[in-house]
Amino acid sequence: MLKGPDAPASLRAAAAASRPDKFAPPGCERDSEISDTLQILVDPWRFLIIREAFFGAERFNEFAARLCMPRATLTKALTNLVSSGLLESVSLGSGGSWKRYLLTDSGRDLFPALLGLMWYGDKWLWDGIPPLALFHEPSRTWFSPLLVWEHDHSPLNPRTVKFEIDPGYWRARDEPLARTYRMDRARQARGLRPCSMERTLAVVGDRWTFMIFQEFFHGNSRFDEFTHNLGIASNVLASRLENLVSHGFLEKQGDGGAYRLTPKGRDTYCPMVLLKTWGDRWLRQGRGTTSRFVSVSTGETTRAIVIVPATGEPVDPADVRLVPLYLPEVSGESS
Protein backbone atom coordinates (compact mmCIF):
# COMPACT_ATOMS: atom_id res chain seq x y z
CA MET A 1 0.00 0.00 0.00
CA LEU A 2 1.27 3.45 -0.90
CA LYS A 3 1.89 5.83 1.95
CA GLY A 4 3.00 9.43 2.24
CA PRO A 5 2.43 12.28 -0.25
CA ASP A 6 2.14 9.88 -3.22
CA ALA A 7 -0.72 7.92 -1.66
CA PRO A 8 -4.28 8.31 -3.01
CA ALA A 9 -6.10 11.39 -1.79
CA SER A 10 -8.53 9.31 0.28
CA LEU A 11 -5.69 7.71 2.23
CA ARG A 12 -4.00 11.05 2.80
CA ALA A 13 -7.28 12.54 4.00
CA ALA A 14 -7.74 9.70 6.47
CA ALA A 15 -4.19 10.15 7.74
CA ALA A 16 -4.70 13.91 8.09
CA ALA A 17 -7.87 13.35 10.11
CA SER A 18 -6.05 11.21 12.64
CA ARG A 19 -2.78 13.16 12.58
CA PRO A 20 -3.37 16.66 11.18
CA ASP A 21 0.24 17.65 11.79
CA LYS A 22 1.58 14.91 9.50
CA PHE A 23 1.37 16.25 5.90
CA ALA A 24 1.93 19.84 4.85
CA PRO A 25 -0.65 21.31 2.44
CA PRO A 26 0.87 22.09 -0.98
CA GLY A 27 3.22 25.07 -0.84
CA CYS A 28 3.16 25.20 2.96
CA GLU A 29 5.52 24.42 5.82
CA ARG A 30 5.23 24.08 9.57
CA ASP A 31 4.90 27.21 11.66
CA SER A 32 7.43 25.59 13.96
CA GLU A 33 9.12 27.23 16.91
CA ILE A 34 11.83 24.57 16.71
CA SER A 35 12.80 25.31 13.12
CA ASP A 36 12.52 29.07 13.67
CA THR A 37 14.84 28.82 16.68
CA LEU A 38 17.28 26.79 14.60
CA GLN A 39 17.19 29.45 11.90
CA ILE A 40 18.63 31.85 14.49
CA LEU A 41 21.21 29.30 15.63
CA VAL A 42 21.74 27.81 12.17
CA ASP A 43 25.53 27.85 12.47
CA PRO A 44 26.92 25.60 15.26
CA TRP A 45 29.45 28.36 16.01
CA ARG A 46 26.58 30.39 17.45
CA PHE A 47 25.70 27.62 19.90
CA LEU A 48 29.32 27.52 21.02
CA ILE A 49 29.55 31.29 21.43
CA ILE A 50 26.49 31.16 23.69
CA ARG A 51 28.13 28.31 25.60
CA GLU A 52 31.27 30.37 26.17
CA ALA A 53 29.14 33.30 27.33
CA PHE A 54 27.80 31.03 30.09
CA PHE A 55 31.42 30.28 30.99
CA GLY A 56 31.98 34.00 31.45
CA ALA A 57 33.45 35.09 28.10
CA GLU A 58 32.51 38.67 27.22
CA ARG A 59 35.25 40.13 25.04
CA PHE A 60 35.94 39.43 21.37
CA ASN A 61 39.43 38.16 22.11
CA GLU A 62 38.11 35.81 24.80
CA PHE A 63 35.71 34.15 22.35
CA ALA A 64 38.41 34.01 19.66
CA ALA A 65 40.96 32.40 21.99
CA ARG A 66 38.61 29.87 23.57
CA LEU A 67 37.02 28.76 20.30
CA CYS A 68 40.04 29.19 17.99
CA MET A 69 37.69 30.85 15.53
CA PRO A 70 38.74 32.87 12.50
CA ARG A 71 38.19 36.51 13.40
CA ALA A 72 35.97 37.22 10.40
CA THR A 73 33.76 34.24 11.25
CA LEU A 74 33.52 35.37 14.88
CA THR A 75 32.64 38.94 13.87
CA LYS A 76 29.79 37.71 11.66
CA ALA A 77 28.48 35.31 14.29
CA LEU A 78 28.52 37.93 17.07
CA THR A 79 26.74 40.41 14.80
CA ASN A 80 24.01 37.85 14.09
CA LEU A 81 23.59 36.98 17.77
CA VAL A 82 23.28 40.67 18.68
CA SER A 83 20.74 41.32 15.90
CA SER A 84 18.78 38.24 17.04
CA GLY A 85 18.63 39.60 20.59
CA LEU A 86 20.61 36.80 22.25
CA LEU A 87 23.58 39.03 23.07
CA GLU A 88 23.86 42.74 23.67
CA SER A 89 26.90 44.75 22.71
CA VAL A 90 28.12 47.20 25.37
CA SER A 91 30.81 49.72 24.46
CA LEU A 92 33.76 50.17 26.79
CA GLY A 93 34.92 53.75 26.95
CA SER A 94 33.91 56.77 24.92
CA GLY A 95 35.50 55.60 21.68
CA GLY A 96 33.22 52.60 21.35
CA SER A 97 35.71 50.37 19.53
CA TRP A 98 36.10 47.99 22.52
CA LYS A 99 32.99 46.04 23.46
CA ARG A 100 31.61 43.48 25.85
CA TYR A 101 29.08 40.93 24.63
CA LEU A 102 26.57 40.07 27.35
CA LEU A 103 23.77 37.53 27.40
CA THR A 104 20.31 39.06 27.23
CA ASP A 105 17.29 37.57 29.00
CA SER A 106 16.47 35.54 25.88
CA GLY A 107 20.08 34.40 25.60
CA ARG A 108 20.15 33.24 29.22
CA ASP A 109 16.86 31.42 28.63
CA LEU A 110 18.66 29.14 26.15
CA PHE A 111 20.47 27.52 29.09
CA PRO A 112 17.98 24.60 29.42
CA ALA A 113 18.29 23.85 25.70
CA LEU A 114 22.08 23.82 25.97
CA LEU A 115 21.79 21.47 28.96
CA GLY A 116 19.57 19.25 26.81
CA LEU A 117 22.27 19.05 24.13
CA MET A 118 24.85 18.35 26.83
CA TRP A 119 22.65 15.64 28.38
CA TYR A 120 22.29 13.97 25.00
CA GLY A 121 26.02 14.10 24.27
CA ASP A 122 26.90 12.77 27.73
CA LYS A 123 24.52 9.83 27.25
CA TRP A 124 25.23 8.82 23.68
CA LEU A 125 28.47 10.38 22.44
CA TRP A 126 30.87 10.40 25.37
CA ASP A 127 32.83 7.46 26.77
CA GLY A 128 33.65 7.56 30.47
CA ILE A 129 33.17 10.50 32.84
CA PRO A 130 31.51 13.46 31.09
CA PRO A 131 33.75 16.51 30.68
CA LEU A 132 31.54 18.96 32.57
CA ALA A 133 29.94 18.81 36.02
CA LEU A 134 27.03 20.95 37.23
CA PHE A 135 26.90 22.33 40.77
CA HIS A 136 23.68 23.87 42.12
CA GLU A 137 24.66 26.64 44.51
CA PRO A 138 21.38 27.07 46.51
CA SER A 139 21.09 23.35 47.36
CA ARG A 140 24.86 22.79 47.45
CA THR A 141 24.50 19.65 45.31
CA TRP A 142 26.09 18.24 42.20
CA PHE A 143 23.41 17.28 39.71
CA SER A 144 22.56 15.86 36.35
CA PRO A 145 19.80 17.78 34.58
CA LEU A 146 16.36 16.17 34.52
CA LEU A 147 14.46 16.82 31.28
CA VAL A 148 10.75 16.59 32.10
CA TRP A 149 7.23 17.67 31.21
CA GLU A 150 6.21 20.64 33.32
CA HIS A 151 2.77 19.41 34.40
CA ASP A 152 3.91 16.28 36.25
CA HIS A 153 7.73 16.20 36.01
CA SER A 154 7.63 12.92 34.09
CA PRO A 155 10.48 12.23 31.62
CA LEU A 156 10.19 13.75 28.17
CA ASN A 157 8.48 11.03 26.16
CA PRO A 158 6.57 11.73 22.93
CA ARG A 159 4.13 8.91 23.70
CA THR A 160 2.80 10.58 26.86
CA VAL A 161 1.67 13.73 25.05
CA LYS A 162 -0.39 14.67 22.02
CA PHE A 163 0.76 17.38 19.62
CA GLU A 164 -2.18 19.65 18.86
CA ILE A 165 -2.26 22.31 16.15
CA ASP A 166 -4.49 25.29 15.38
CA PRO A 167 -5.97 26.01 11.92
CA GLY A 168 -3.21 28.60 11.36
CA TYR A 169 -0.40 26.11 12.03
CA TRP A 170 0.64 25.79 8.36
CA ARG A 171 2.20 28.81 6.68
CA ALA A 172 3.39 29.59 3.17
CA ARG A 173 6.81 28.07 2.53
CA ASP A 174 9.70 30.52 2.69
CA GLU A 175 12.31 30.90 0.02
CA PRO A 176 14.92 28.12 -0.04
CA LEU A 177 17.29 28.32 2.90
CA ALA A 178 20.81 29.58 2.51
CA ARG A 179 23.40 26.85 2.53
CA THR A 180 24.44 25.79 6.01
CA TYR A 181 27.46 23.89 7.23
CA ARG A 182 27.76 21.06 9.69
CA MET A 183 30.60 20.68 12.11
CA ASP A 184 33.26 18.12 11.34
CA ARG A 185 31.78 14.62 11.24
CA ALA A 186 34.79 13.19 13.04
CA ARG A 187 33.69 15.24 16.08
CA GLN A 188 37.02 16.96 16.39
CA ALA A 189 36.84 19.65 19.05
CA ARG A 190 36.61 23.26 18.03
CA GLY A 191 38.58 25.35 20.45
CA LEU A 192 40.08 24.35 23.76
CA ARG A 193 37.16 22.80 25.64
CA PRO A 194 36.12 19.13 25.62
CA CYS A 195 32.35 19.31 25.29
CA SER A 196 29.64 16.70 24.81
CA MET A 197 27.28 19.39 23.52
CA GLU A 198 29.78 20.03 20.76
CA ARG A 199 29.83 16.33 19.91
CA THR A 200 26.05 16.41 19.53
CA LEU A 201 26.28 19.40 17.19
CA ALA A 202 29.00 17.64 15.18
CA VAL A 203 26.43 15.12 14.01
CA VAL A 204 23.12 16.99 14.05
CA GLY A 205 24.25 20.61 14.17
CA ASP A 206 22.52 21.98 11.10
CA ARG A 207 18.94 23.01 10.53
CA TRP A 208 18.11 20.36 7.92
CA THR A 209 19.12 17.49 10.19
CA PHE A 210 17.07 18.82 13.11
CA MET A 211 14.10 19.27 10.77
CA ILE A 212 14.40 15.68 9.56
CA PHE A 213 14.26 14.53 13.19
CA GLN A 214 11.25 16.78 13.71
CA GLU A 215 9.42 15.02 10.87
CA PHE A 216 9.87 11.65 12.56
CA PHE A 217 8.12 12.95 15.65
CA HIS A 218 5.22 14.12 13.45
CA GLY A 219 4.79 10.57 12.17
CA ASN A 220 6.82 10.72 8.95
CA SER A 221 9.55 8.23 8.12
CA ARG A 222 9.83 8.01 4.34
CA PHE A 223 12.10 9.79 1.88
CA ASP A 224 9.13 11.15 -0.13
CA GLU A 225 7.44 12.42 3.03
CA PHE A 226 10.56 14.37 3.99
CA THR A 227 10.91 15.95 0.54
CA HIS A 228 7.22 16.91 0.50
CA ASN A 229 7.14 18.49 3.96
CA LEU A 230 10.57 20.12 3.95
CA GLY A 231 11.01 21.17 0.32
CA ILE A 232 14.53 19.81 0.59
CA ALA A 233 16.63 18.87 -2.45
CA SER A 234 16.87 15.10 -2.91
CA ASN A 235 20.67 15.06 -2.88
CA VAL A 236 20.82 17.09 0.34
CA LEU A 237 18.25 14.85 2.00
CA ALA A 238 20.06 11.70 0.89
CA SER A 239 23.32 13.03 2.33
CA ARG A 240 21.74 13.88 5.69
CA LEU A 241 19.98 10.50 5.94
CA GLU A 242 23.18 8.65 5.06
CA ASN A 243 25.02 10.56 7.79
CA LEU A 244 22.34 9.72 10.37
CA VAL A 245 22.35 6.03 9.43
CA SER A 246 26.16 5.85 9.59
CA HIS A 247 26.17 7.39 13.09
CA GLY A 248 23.47 5.05 14.40
CA PHE A 249 20.59 7.52 14.68
CA LEU A 250 18.48 5.83 11.99
CA GLU A 251 17.97 2.40 10.51
CA LYS A 252 16.91 1.91 6.92
CA GLN A 253 13.89 -0.34 6.47
CA GLY A 254 14.03 -2.43 3.30
CA ASP A 255 14.11 -0.78 -0.13
CA GLY A 256 10.94 1.28 0.20
CA GLY A 257 12.57 4.53 1.27
CA ALA A 258 11.47 4.24 4.90
CA TYR A 259 13.64 4.81 7.96
CA ARG A 260 13.25 4.10 11.66
CA LEU A 261 14.66 5.94 14.66
CA THR A 262 17.01 3.95 16.85
CA PRO A 263 16.96 4.55 20.64
CA LYS A 264 19.86 6.95 20.04
CA GLY A 265 17.78 8.80 17.45
CA ARG A 266 14.63 8.86 19.58
CA ASP A 267 16.46 10.66 22.38
CA THR A 268 17.03 13.67 20.10
CA TYR A 269 13.40 14.47 20.91
CA CYS A 270 14.45 15.85 24.31
CA PRO A 271 16.70 18.75 23.24
CA MET A 272 14.34 19.49 20.35
CA VAL A 273 11.26 20.06 22.51
CA LEU A 274 13.33 22.27 24.80
CA LEU A 275 13.98 24.46 21.74
CA LYS A 276 10.20 24.73 21.32
CA THR A 277 9.85 25.92 24.90
CA TRP A 278 12.32 28.71 24.16
CA GLY A 279 10.68 29.56 20.84
CA ASP A 280 7.20 29.70 22.38
CA ARG A 281 8.40 32.34 24.82
CA TRP A 282 10.67 34.45 22.64
CA LEU A 283 9.46 34.08 19.04
CA ARG A 284 5.69 34.16 19.53
CA GLN A 285 5.32 37.37 21.49
CA GLY A 286 2.25 39.26 20.35
CA ARG A 287 0.86 36.54 18.09
CA GLY A 288 0.64 33.42 20.21
CA THR A 289 1.57 29.83 19.50
CA THR A 290 -0.09 27.65 16.87
CA SER A 291 0.75 24.30 18.48
CA ARG A 292 1.08 22.75 21.90
CA PHE A 293 1.80 19.56 23.80
CA VAL A 294 -1.14 18.09 25.70
CA SER A 295 -0.84 15.34 28.30
CA VAL A 296 -2.54 12.12 27.18
CA SER A 297 -3.46 11.20 30.76
CA THR A 298 -4.70 14.54 32.11
CA GLY A 299 -5.49 16.73 29.08
CA GLU A 300 -3.30 19.53 30.47
CA THR A 301 -1.26 21.71 28.18
CA THR A 302 2.39 21.23 29.05
CA ARG A 303 5.89 22.07 27.93
CA ALA A 304 9.41 20.74 28.24
CA ILE A 305 11.59 22.06 31.08
CA VAL A 306 14.82 21.15 32.89
CA ILE A 307 14.73 20.76 36.65
CA VAL A 308 17.29 20.35 39.43
CA PRO A 309 16.67 16.96 41.13
CA ALA A 310 17.33 18.22 44.66
CA THR A 311 14.69 20.93 44.48
CA GLY A 312 12.35 19.95 41.67
CA GLU A 313 12.57 23.54 40.46
CA PRO A 314 13.39 24.72 36.92
CA VAL A 315 17.09 25.28 36.42
CA ASP A 316 18.28 28.88 36.66
CA PRO A 317 21.70 29.58 35.08
CA ALA A 318 22.45 32.12 37.82
CA ASP A 319 22.34 29.25 40.36
CA VAL A 320 24.54 26.81 38.44
CA ARG A 321 28.32 26.59 38.42
CA LEU A 322 29.88 24.87 35.40
CA VAL A 323 32.90 22.88 36.57
CA PRO A 324 35.29 21.39 33.98
CA LEU A 325 36.43 17.84 34.78
CA TYR A 326 39.55 18.23 32.69
CA LEU A 327 42.69 20.34 32.74
CA PRO A 328 41.78 23.06 30.27
CA GLU A 329 44.15 25.35 28.46
CA VAL A 330 41.54 27.95 29.31
CA SER A 331 41.95 28.50 33.05
CA GLY A 332 40.23 30.35 35.83
CA GLU A 333 36.75 29.85 34.47
CA SER A 334 33.61 29.50 36.48
CA SER A 335 30.05 30.52 35.93
Rank of each mutant, 00 (worst) to 15 (best):
M1G: 01
M1C: 01
L2P: 12
P8T: 05
P8Q: 08
L11P: 00
A14G: 08
S18I: 15
R19A: 15
F23H: 14
D31W: 12
S35W: 05
L41W: 08
R46G: 02
I49H: 03
R51F: 14
F54M: 05
F60I: 03
M69Q: 11
P70Y: 00
A72T: 14
T79L: 09
T79C: 07
T79A: 10
L81P: 05
L81H: 05
L92N: 07
G95D: 07
R100M: 02
Y101T: 00
T104A: 01
P112M: 04
L115P: 06
G116P: 09
L117C: 06
D122T: 06
F135L: 04
P138H: 03
S139C: 04
W142Y: 06
L146Q: 15
V148K: 02
E150V: 00
E150A: 09
H153V: 08
F163C: 10
E164H: 11
I165C: 11
I165N: 11
I165W: 12
G168E: 10
Y169T: 03
W170E: 13
W170Y: 15
W170L: 12
R171A: 02
R171W: 00
A172D: 05
L177N: 07
A178P: 06
A178E: 14
R187K: 15
G191Y: 02
L192C: 06
L192G: 01
L192I: 04
M197I: 06
E198W: 10
L201Q: 07
A202D: 14
V203S: 08
V204S: 13
V204W: 09
G205D: 14
G205S: 13
R207I: 01
W208C: 01
T209M: 04
T209L: 02
F210R: 03
I212N: 03
I212T: 09
S221W: 08
S221E: 07
F223H: 05
F226R: 01
H228W: 12
I232H: 03
A233E: 10
S234C: 03
N235K: 11
N243F: 07
V245E: 14
S246W: 09
S246T: 05
F249G: 04
Q253C: 01
G256D: 05
G256M: 03
G257I: 10
Y259A: 01
P263N: 01
T268P: 02
Y269L: 12
K276C: 09
R281Q: 08
L283N: 07
R284V: 07
G288A: 10
S291K: 04
V294E: 15
S297F: 00
G299F: 03
G299V: 05
A304I: 04
A310I: 07
T311C: 08
G312Q: 02
G312R: 01
P314R: 12
V315S: 06
D316P: 00
D319H: 07
P324F: 05
Y326M: 11
Y326C: 12
V330L: 07
